[in-house]
Simulated assay, not measured.
Amino acid sequence: MTSPHPAHARISIIGAGPGGLTCARILQRHGITVTVHDRDAGPDSRDQGGSLDLHADNGQIALRAAGLLDQFFELARPEGQEMRQMDPTGTITSHQVPADDEMFKPEIDRGQLRGLLLDSLLPGTVDWGHALEYVSGPAEGPRRLHFTDGTTVEADLVIGADGARSRVRPAVSPAVPEYSGVSFLEAWFDDVDDRHAEIAGLVGRGGAHVADGERAMFAQRNGGDHIRVYLIQRVPADWIRASGLTPQDTEGIRSLLLDRYAGWSPRLLRILTDNDGPYVDRPILALPVPHTWEHSPTVTLLGDAAHLMPPLGVGVNLAMLDAADLAAALRDATTVEDAVRVYEKTMLPRSAEMARLLEGGAEHLLGDDDRAA
C-alpha cells in the first residue's frame, strides 16, 4: 500500500487525554481530518484527577501551536507554583514562592485542561464509549481497530495516546510497564478553607512535600477549594490485600497508615487520615529505559503509551509536546510514513534522554529533597 498524503489519510487517535486532544486540535487547525476514540462514555463520566503544571518549554509550546495559550493563562493558577518542603515534624525546610509575574509552570486542573481542549475541537471529533481491544492489519496498512463492543474501524494511521496500559503499543512494541516498587495512595479533601482549614494552611496555595527516607506525602492544592494528597510508600504492588484489607476498607487503611507514619507530627497525620471519601491505590509503573520500536508507517505512539516515566512533573508536558511535533510533521510531510519518521526521529531520542534522567525517580520522592511534582 502506498502511504497517503496526510490530508487524505484516515487518522485515528486512541485516547482523549491531553496528548491525544492536543494532537487532534493542531491537526484540525491545519485542515487535517482526525477522529479520537475514547473508552469513556462521555467527557464527564469520571474524575480527571488532580492538578498539572504546564511548563513554558514544552506543554505551553504545544498550547501555543494549538492556538490555546491565552485561554490557558486565563484558567491557570500561577500561585500553584508555590512549593513547601517540610520534615516529619511539620517544620518548613524549604519554601519556594513564585514571583507575581512568574508563568513558567502555572497549575491547571486536569478537568479544566481537558475541557479547554475538547471545546476547541470540531463537533463529533471524539467518538466516546469505544474502548480499543487491539489493532490488526499489515504494517504497511491499512490498519483495523477492533473495539470491545465488536465494531471495527479502518485507518491509515493509528496514534496511540492511550496511556500506561496502551492497547495500541502491542502493534509496534512488546514492552509492558513494570512496577517501580513505589506506590501512591491518593486521598482528597473538599471545601478545604472551611472544613479543613488547618490542612489548607499547611499546604498553602501550591504543593507541600514531606519525606523521611522510607515514606512520604505530597499534598497539592487544586482549583475549586480542593486538595489532593498522595501518600508515597515503598511497598509490594498488592500491599493493601497483603495486609488483609480491601481498597474499600477506608477505616482499615487509615489505621494501617497511622501505624506506618508513626512519629510524624499530629498535624501531618491529619493530612494522612482526615480525607473525604475512600483512598485510591495508584502503583507507579514505568516502561523499560529506553523504550524504542521498529518503525511502522501506520502506527505510532505519544505520551505515556510511548515513554511512561515516574510522576516527576514531566509526563503531560512531554505528551503534549509529542502531540505538537507529530501534528507538525503530518502538516508538513507529503506522506503519512514520512511524517511518522520525522516525528519519531525527534521524539524517541528526547524521551529516551528524559527517561534515563528519571529512571528510578520514584525512589527520590521518598527522600527529603524537592523533586516531587
Rank of each mutant, 00 (worst) to 15 (best):
residue 171 A to N: 03
residue 157 L to F: 05
residue 145 L to R: 00
residue 104 F to R: 14
residue 129 G to M: 13
residue 127 D to R: 10
residue 135 V to P: 00
residue 137 G to H: 03
residue 129 G to C: 14
residue 160 G to C: 11
residue 129 G to K: 12
residue 149 D to M: 09
residue 116 L to F: 10
residue 120 S to D: 08
residue 130 H to F: 13
residue 110 R to C: 08
residue 157 L to H: 04
residue 104 F to M: 10
residue 110 R to M: 13
residue 106 P to A: 02
residue 113 L to S: 12
residue 120 S to Y: 08
residue 167 R to E: 00
residue 104 F to H: 12
residue 106 P to R: 03
residue 138 P to E: 08
residue 137 G to P: 02
residue 134 Y to C: 08
residue 147 F to V: 08
residue 123 P to H: 12
residue 163 G to D: 04
residue 139 A to Q: 14
residue 129 G to W: 10
residue 129 G to P: 02
residue 96 Q to H: 11
residue 150 G to I: 10
residue 125 T to P: 00
residue 172 V to P: 02
residue 138 P to W: 14
residue 157 L to P: 01
residue 163 G to L: 04
residue 143 R to Y: 06
residue 118 L to Q: 04
residue 106 P to Y: 00
residue 114 R to K: 15
residue 122 L to I: 07
residue 165 R to G: 01
residue 154 E to K: 13
residue 119 D to R: 14
residue 164 A to N: 10
residue 144 R to I: 14
residue 164 A to L: 06
residue 163 G to H: 03
residue 151 T to H: 12
residue 167 R to G: 00
residue 155 A to T: 01
residue 99 A to Y: 05
residue 97 V to E: 04
residue 154 E to L: 08
residue 96 Q to V: 13
residue 102 E to D: 15
residue 145 L to W: 01
residue 135 V to S: 07
residue 144 R to S: 14
residue 163 G to Y: 03
residue 142 P to Y: 06
residue 114 R to Q: 09
residue 169 R to P: 02
residue 136 S to F: 00
residue 143 R to G: 05
residue 115 G to K: 11
residue 126 V to N: 00
residue 148 T to S: 07
residue 116 L to Y: 15
residue 106 P to H: 07
residue 99 A to S: 09
residue 126 V to W: 02
residue 101 D to G: 14
residue 153 V to N: 08
residue 149 D to G: 11
residue 149 D to Q: 11
residue 131 A to Y: 00
residue 147 F to T: 04
residue 122 L to T: 12
residue 163 G to E: 04
residue 147 F to M: 12
residue 172 V to W: 12
residue 120 S to V: 12
residue 128 W to G: 10
residue 148 T to A: 15
residue 145 L to K: 01
residue 111 G to R: 13
residue 117 L to Y: 09
residue 99 A to G: 15
residue 146 H to A: 05
residue 140 E to K: 05
residue 164 A to H: 02
residue 138 P to Q: 05
residue 114 R to G: 06
residue 108 I to A: 07
residue 158 V to R: 05
residue 165 R to T: 13
residue 127 D to T: 06
residue 136 S to D: 11
residue 131 A to S: 04
residue 113 L to I: 06
residue 147 F to W: 13
residue 165 R to E: 03
residue 129 G to H: 11
residue 127 D to P: 00
residue 163 G to F: 01
residue 125 T to L: 00
residue 171 A to H: 07
residue 144 R to Q: 15
residue 124 G to W: 04
residue 108 I to R: 09
residue 104 F to S: 12
residue 120 S to E: 15
residue 101 D to H: 15
residue 132 L to V: 02
residue 110 R to S: 09
residue 118 L to F: 03
residue 102 E to M: 10
residue 96 Q to K: 09
residue 135 V to D: 07
residue 169 R to E: 00
residue 165 R to F: 15
residue 98 P to S: 07
residue 98 P to H: 14
residue 128 W to L: 07
residue 105 K to P: 03
residue 153 V to W: 11
